[in-house]
Amino acid sequence: MNRDELAKYLLDKFPDTLELLETGKAEPFFLLKKPDGLVEFCRAIRDDVELRMDYLCQMCGVDTGENFEVVYSVASVKKRYRFDFKFPLPYNKAEIDSVQTVWAGANWFERETWELYGINVRNHGNLTRFLLPDNWDQGFPMRKDWDAPDFKRLPEV
């Protein structure tokens, strides 16, 4: 399957779950319409015999200034496919489910997202300080409204 066939296959397979985004510039980029079904969706694409998305390239949070987004980049080692999907999260209800049961390597990515964005991860099991110092108490540094205390923003040219 090439890029377009892969996108079509996924849209046919999960018509109520996925929506193809125009903003994706390389591999197919989907919007996950039902964040509650995240774990089931991940398990479905991993176990699908045509797809076998067994490899989580990366997972990260994004602060767009209006809400959070969570992005997953998945790949298949066996079938050589790759695509991404994401879903928005409101600031006041920033909570996702852990996908460690599907891809064990999600553990640290989720821990980092929790620590740097303050996005809570349900069923994670080890949400403790990680990249930041153990006694960190200055909030979530990757949020857009956070600047380091000694940071001076230069005027735009």
């Binding site: 903003t23 994706g24 390389a26 980029f29 390239c57 990366q58 992005v71 980049s73």
Partner: peptide, 8 residues
């Protein structure tokens, strides 16, 4: 332009 991608 507006867009997003993961490149490896």
């Amino acid at each position: 332009p507006a867009g997003e991608l993961y490149s490896r």
